[in-house]
Design a protein around this nucleic acid. Structure first.
Ligand SMILES: [Mn+2]
Ligand SMILES: [Mn+2]
Ligand SMILES: [Zn+2]
Ligand SMILES: [Zn+2]
Lengths: 147, 147
DNA sequence: ATAGGAACGAGAATCAGTCTCATATTGTGG
DNA sequence: CCACAATATGAGACTGATTCTCGTTCCTAT
C-alpha cells in the first residue's frame, strides 16, 4: 500500500521547507528523521520520549512546532484514532494515502485504500459546493480474526 | 436531514438503560433531554454551560459519566472534530445518521448525509471481508462563507 | 420505611497541548 | 571571516478538557 522510502520522504520534507524559506534547525531535523522511519502514526508525547531515550532530548514546544509545520505544508497528517492524543504520520508526496479500520475487539488497526470511497468523497464536496481539502475516514468493527 | 423525533430517542435511551439495570437519576435525565433536542453534536463543556444557564446546573463528573454511558450503549457517539474537546450526539436507533465537514478557517461545523458515500463504505467492508459496525467520516476544508 | 447499591457533585489532579521569552543557530551581505 | 537580522529552540509556566476522589444524596427492591 503506501509508506514509500523513508529517505525519500525526509528529503522531500526538507526540500519543501527550504523552498518555503525556513532555516534549518536541530529539533526539526530530529523530528523529521524519527517520523521518516515510522511504520505507523506516533503521538507528540511518544516522539518526545523516544528522542529523549535516544539521548536527543528535544523541547516539547519545538516538537509541536515541527509537527504543526509539517501538517501545514501537507508533509504529515494528524490521525485521530481514539479520543486521547493526536498522532502524526508522514504523508506520501504522491498524494497516495490510506485509511484505517480499527477492530473494536482486539484493537488491531488495519489500513486500506479504496478508489470508490475517494470518488464518493469528491462527489460529496462538489454536491455541497465546499472545498474539501482533506478527509478522515475511520471504520470501526471486527477484523477477520475476531469476526 | 437526520434527527428524527427527540422524544423517541430519549424514550429509547431510557429503555435501553433500564433494561441494562441502571437506576434513574437527575443528572442523567437532564443530559438525555438536552441531547435529545440537539440537531448536532455538543461538547461536554457546552452541555455543562447550557444546563447551568437553564438553572439545571449539573456536576461535570456526572455529565462525563452519562456521556460515557450513552456511548457504551450505542445511544450516542463521540465525534472528534479537532484536537480540543470531544463532541457528542445522539445515535438514531434506525441507523440514520450524518457526517460533518469542518471549516478550518472559521471552525464552523456543517452536517451532511450522502447515500453514495454510505454505499461506498459498505462496499469497502465487503471487499475487505470485515464487519464494519460504524464509521467516522470528517471532511476538512472551507465552508461557503470562508471560501 | 429501610438498607444497600447507584448516582451525584465539588473540587483536586492529570495531562496533552500552548505560550512566553530569553538564548542559540543559521544564512546573508559585506 | 564577521556582523546582523531572521529564525529556531527550550525551560517551564499556563490552559483547558477530562478524569479522579470521596463524602453525600437518591432509587428501589424488600
Ligand atoms: Mn481518502
Ligand atoms: Mn455514514
Ligand atoms: Zn480484531
Ligand atoms: Zn468557515
Amino acid at each position: 500500500m503506501s509508506s514509500a522510502n523513508p529517505h525519500a520522504w525526509s528529503e522531500h520534507a526538507r526540500a519543501v521547507l527550504a523552498r518555503a524559506g525556513r532555516q534549518r534547525g536541530g529539533a526539526r531535523e530530529r523530528v523529521i528523521e524519527l517520523l521518516a522511519r515510522q511504520p505507523c502514526a506516533l503521538s507528540a508525547v511518544e516522539i518526545e520520549d523516544e528522542l529523549r531515550a535516544r539521548g536527543e532530548a528535544t523541547g516539547r514546544a519545538s516538537i509541536y512546532r515541527v509537527l504543526d509545520l509539517l501538517v501545514e505544508h501537507g508533509l504529515a497528517e494528524r490521525v485521530t484514532v481514539g479520543q486521547g492524543q493526536a498522532r502524526f504520520e508522514t504523508v506520501d508526496p504522491t498524494g497516495e494515502h490510506h485509511h484505517h479500520l480499527i477492530c473494536e475487539r482486539c484493537g488491531r488497526l488495519v489500513a486500506f485504500d479504496d478508489p470508490g470511497l475517494e470518488r464518493a468523497i469528491d462527489r460529496v464536496g462538489q454536491r455541497l459546493g465546499m472545498r474539501v481539502e482533506r478527509h478522515d475516514v475511520l471504520l470501526r468493527g471486527a477484523c477477520e480474526r475476531c469476526e
